[in-house]
């Protein structure tokens, strides 16, 4: 297995990019620390041949923890706004802030596919679902956002 330092060097930018999309620039650092601490504790992975998919699975779980913690802290309001609220900081990619407002499954599938650059098969492995379900979640997420994908 490659030394952890090389793993960190090779995956650093991908994990950072994924987390900036998943939780925003400000929260990305905490999630990044938690992702690599968890990765080091579990390193080397026993079954995963694909290290990118493995580390983004961990990063996705940390991002989910972050969203749940934020939801617990959120103050309930009387009226739910009709459209997803844009919670991005100024200068940040508005589109990813909108992705963050999607339901859990769709958000995770869209993030892993388009910010993490995983294949649908790898997304499925990360989410513990079938490839078809991963594809559907990503598709529904995009439809909800009325987004086209440019690659």
């Amino acid at each position: 297995m490659i030394p952890f330092q090389r793993f960190l060097d090779e995956q650093r930018d991908a994990v950072w990019r994924f987390l900036v999309a998943a939780v925003g620039r400000d929260a990305a650092d905490d999630c990044f620390q938690e992702t690599f601490l968890a990765a080091m504790a579990a390193y080397p992975p026993r079954h995963d041949r694909n290290l990118r998919g493995w580390v983004l699975t961990i990063a996705n779980n940390k991002a989910l923890d972050h969203h749940r913690a934020r939801a617990r802290r959120a103050v309930p309001v009387e009226e739910v706004p009709e459209v997803a609220v844009w919670d991005g900081e100024p200068g940040e990619d508005e589109v990813w802030a909108r992705v963050r407002a999607l339901p859990d499954k769709q958000r995770a599938a869209v993030l892993l596919r388009y910010a993490g650059d995983l294949t649908h098969r790898q997304v499925a492995a990360a989410l513990g679902c079938t490839e078809e379900a991963a594809r559907r979640s990503a598709h529904e997420g995009l439809k909800k956002l009325r987004l086209e994908v440019t690659r």
Binding site: L8, R12, D13, V15, W16, R17, V20, A21, R25, A28, D29, F32, Q33, F36, L37, D93, V95, W96, V99, V110, Y114, A115, D117, L142, L145, R146, L147, E148, V149, T150, R151
Partner: peptide, 20 residues
């Protein structure tokens, strides 16, 4: 509206790796 991977500053990623 398009969905391209988010822009990020590699220096930020490097700084996060150093903190780790």
């Amino acid at each position: 509206m398009t969905l391209a991977p988010p822009a990020f500053d590699p220096a930020d990623a490097a700084a996060a790796a150093r903190r780790f």
